[in-house]
Simulated assay, not measured.
Amino acid sequence: MTSAQIAIMTTIILYLCLVIFTGVMIGKRSKKSAEGFYLGGRGMGPLVTAMSAEASDMSSYLLMGIPGLAYLSGVADASWTAIGLAIGTYLNFLLVARRLRRYSVELDAITIPSFISKRYGEKKPIIMGIASLIILVFFVPYVASGLAAIGKLFNSLFGWNYMLSVIVGAIVIISYTSVGGFSAVATMDLIQSVIMTVALCVIVVFGIVQAGGMDAVLAHASSLPGFLSFGQTYNAASGQAEPYGLIRIVSMLAWGLGYFGMPHILVRFMAIRHEDELKLSRRIASIWVVISMAVAVFIGIVGHAVSSVGRIPMLEGSATETVIVRLSDLLSSYGLLPAIVAGCILAGILAATMSTADSQLLAAA
């Protein structure tokens, strides 16, 4: 194992220790009740509410999926998806948050299934049982996919056994989620959103430098047919532009519809300390989503330019999702301090995965 790999591994291990320590400390101060465990005693501030909602939603898609999509086919797919997600975020806060917060308090509901059940006054918990079953059926595999991503990350970086890596990730997530409950999850989501933001900013600046500057990045992107177009998409196999029709645009925009039914996001609205603070949360969440996803799309463009000058390999297919990992590996080759920074960036990918998995685990619970 090289010194750069040791520095990266040490940074990630320290981050995991921070996660567990934070969960344990918050767990000691949390209210010992069902409402305290599942909603943090309805005492979340607007900043934590906003960033926790967004971090628990974005997962590794923000740091791997969107950059990889932009790298593979240009801005059309990634940008229309990002626009749909931004619109969905804003409308969810605007149309759902205040009502859900108000009526969940009046009905004394601490979960989405219990809210639906009490809202319609059912005498037998049939609706609640169906809603709970749906959450379990879909969230258990979703949590498992997050753990699988953690296993693949450690396996590809350090050659660790895949199953051992999955178990380590599961132990870390389950430990701070079970001890600290919603308060620990929401606080860690805030921390993880900061790490994700820093990772995006550092890698985009580093990538621009490696590509030869902003002019070189834009010149390369412009040379690829349809790469910078919202109405066309770049086909890497043929090297030609393809039309990007209305149906595909609507399909990408429809990603934002998912927000209105995600239990791990909706409970954030129920947990805020006062409904009047949701307006500030909406502004924070909307601004962060727009900026972070715009940077993620741009990383894909920058990464393709870096590949074109031979600094990282030209990526194809699903390998395009590793563009940030490749850039981090390149960064770590410049010495100990850059390797530590690269470790922080890779911890950002880990944070993105964990921030979704812990919230879904709590919702499934």
Score class of each variant (00 low, 15 high):
Ile66Thr: 14
Pro67Cys: 09
Leu69Val: 03
Tyr71Ala: 03
Leu72Val: 02
Leu72Asp: 10
Val75Tyr: 00
Val75Gly: 05
Ala76Ile: 01
Asp77Gln: 15
Asp77Phe: 13
Ser79Tyr: 02
Thr81Leu: 15
Gly84Tyr: 09
Ile87Thr: 00
Ile87Leu: 11
Thr89Trp: 06
Thr89Tyr: 03
Tyr90Asn: 05
Leu91Val: 04
Asn92Ala: 01
Asn92Ile: 04
Phe93Arg: 07
Val96Pro: 00
Ala97Pro: 00
Arg98Ile: 02
Leu100Lys: 03
Arg101Tyr: 08
Ser104Ile: 09
Glu106Cys: 09
Glu106Val: 13
Thr111Leu: 11
Ile112Ala: 06
Pro113His: 11
Ser114Arg: 09
Ser114Asp: 15
Phe115Gly: 03
Ser117Arg: 14
Lys118Asn: 11
Tyr120Asn: 03
Lys123Tyr: 06
Lys123Pro: 02
Pro125Ala: 00
Pro125Leu: 10
Met128Lys: 13
Gly129Phe: 07
Gly129Glu: 10
Gly129Gln: 12
Ile130His: 00
Ala131Asn: 09
Ala131Phe: 12
Leu133Pro: 01
Leu133Phe: 10
Leu133Lys: 02
Ile135Ser: 01
Ile135Tyr: 02
Leu136Val: 14
Val137Asn: 07
Phe139Cys: 07
Pro141Leu: 11
Val143Ile: 13
Ala144Asn: 12
Ser145Gly: 02
Gly146Phe: 05
Ala149Arg: 12
Ile150Glu: 01
Ile150Met: 03
Gly151Lys: 01
Ser156Asp: 14
Phe158Ile: 15
Asn161Cys: 09
Asn161Thr: 08
Leu164Glu: 01
Leu164Trp: 10
Gly169Ala: 09
Ala170Trp: 00
Ala170Tyr: 00
Ile171Trp: 02
Val172Met: 04
Val172Gln: 07
Ile174Cys: 04
Ile174His: 01
Ser175Asp: 03
Ser175Phe: 06
Ser178His: 11
Ser178Pro: 02
Val179His: 14
Gly180Gln: 14
Ser183Asp: 00
Ala184Gly: 02
Ala184Ser: 12
Val185Pro: 05
Ala186Gln: 01
Ala186Asp: 13
Met188Asn: 15
Met188Ile: 13
Asp189His: 10
Ile191Asp: 01
Thr197Arg: 03
Val198Leu: 07
Val198Lys: 08
Ala199Pro: 04
Leu200Ser: 08
Leu200Asn: 08
Leu200Arg: 08
Cys201Gln: 04
Cys201Ile: 15
Cys201Thr: 09
Val202Met: 11
Ile203Val: 14
Val205Asp: 08
Val205Ile: 13
